[in-house]
Design a protein around this nucleic acid. Sequence first.
DNA 1: AATTTCACCGATAGTACTATCGGTGAAATC
DNA 2: GATTTCACCGATAGTACTATCGGTGAAATT
Lengths: 248, 248
Amino acid sequence: MTSTPLSRSEAKDLTRRRLIEAALTVLDEEGETGLTTGKVAKAAGIAQSSFYVHFKDMQELLLVLAEEGGERLRGAMREARRRAREAPGDLERHRDTFRIPLEAICRHPELLRIQLRARHDPSSSLRDFADRTAAAYREHHAADLAALGYTAGDERDRRRLEMIAEGVNAATNALAMGHLEGRYPDLDECADILVALSRGALRLLRHESGGTAERGEGPGHAGLDGPAEQPAHPGRAQHGGGQDAQQE
Amino acid sequence: MTSTPLSRSEAKDLTRRRLIEAALTVLDEEGETGLTTGKVAKAAGIAQSSFYVHFKDMQELLLVLAEEGGERLRGAMREARRRAREAPGDLERHRDTFRIPLEAICRHPELLRIQLRARHDPSSSLRDFADRTAAAYREHHAADLAALGYTAGDERDRRRLEMIAEGVNAATNALAMGHLEGRYPDLDECADILVALSRGALRLLRHESGGTAERGEGPGHAGLDGPAEQPAHPGRAQHGGGQDAQQE
DNA sequence: AATTTCACCGATAGTACTATCGGTGAAATC
DNA sequence: GATTTCACCGATAGTACTATCGGTGAAATT
């Protein structure tokens, strides 16, 4: 019964929001090719020409979309990072570092899809956004790993840390998509795989930190394991304060 | 001086080839949105209307493109796999398993870009192709790992093997792109990272193969390493025989 | 040499999308 | 209550692309 006593500006904002949501849907379902003012306006329930009341053109809407989407995703990542930092040595939390991004992706898969598409599409208006987002993730993740105790000593280590972060990020996206496609029903299992991938790579980074750059693949002195590993056993507890265990 | 005594069908084939190459270029540079009969025809040096002499419509050209591109990439992968199988226990070769795909990507980055874009674009005509290609890679890689000795015992192991393959594939693509973007100048280093990523993940798969599926994340007994690794030494440097050093 | 074939061309009808414009009515302001 | 503002509308000019058609000349066939 309660009618809708919307003020003019409230109504406008609402329409604008509907346009943005509609654009997101169309973009996800039909790609940038199918994203037209007509379709978006129709999906939002207004006339095509009214689109221009809210946005100068489609480009402007895309920009807003990029900012909003980026913020949503980045927020989820920040959250994951925050939680991971809370107890860096706790194995369970370490797994969280991967599970939370996975969940974030699954909550808004269209955002990742759009970003991934744009990332490899030179003609996309969202290209810049996608590049910046990707770079932000890389650095986020690299910082996460650093927080876990994998501090980068020299230039090479820093680059490797970044490479690992980038690789694991890509794997995260892939597994999340696989999960959404029904191939990997268990997100926890996805997280486990990601933890394992990271571990292996970080081990490489670790035991070479001091030595020469012998190309022969130095997996040699595998003696030292990654930091957060040994003290792992404790089902979930942490007494062994992981990250600082190994000192070079 | 030698004029061009092209027969009619030869000339036609040549034009057709030019159209395909032009389409590939346009597709890479401007995305599917910018792929129009006019642009492709112009890039190939013929009139827009003549496009239809060679293809029923753009869709048909895209199909041809998908087949050709897929074949090119798949060929490179087969090669990598073949070489890897030749000496499964050889560490150097193991690295090849990753370096060769990296090189293949760098030789034709546009093919990967196009595939990645299509993979996440529901509206793309290349969607099916991209999905099939991705699935093929996954299975290829999973088979590679199996060939390296990581046979999947039960259902769970098989799924994990697939997940690892998918994750490492994604990481491969990401690192190759990073290399092309100038961030990772050394392809060998990329391969090293990939080897390390795989190792870590495969270890997970290994030492849980028999036990119960304790969710608590069993990375605990980091002991047993992957199978095909021990006999590796032969490579070049080896004394320490790296990865197998730490047991338990 | 005469005839046929056909790759290519320019022109164009048809379609889809963009972006603007004048009009309308209800909210906001006076 | 009169006036102004403005979100929304339908109509439409402009632009870009698709796909077809009849014409042309050189290669292929006879």
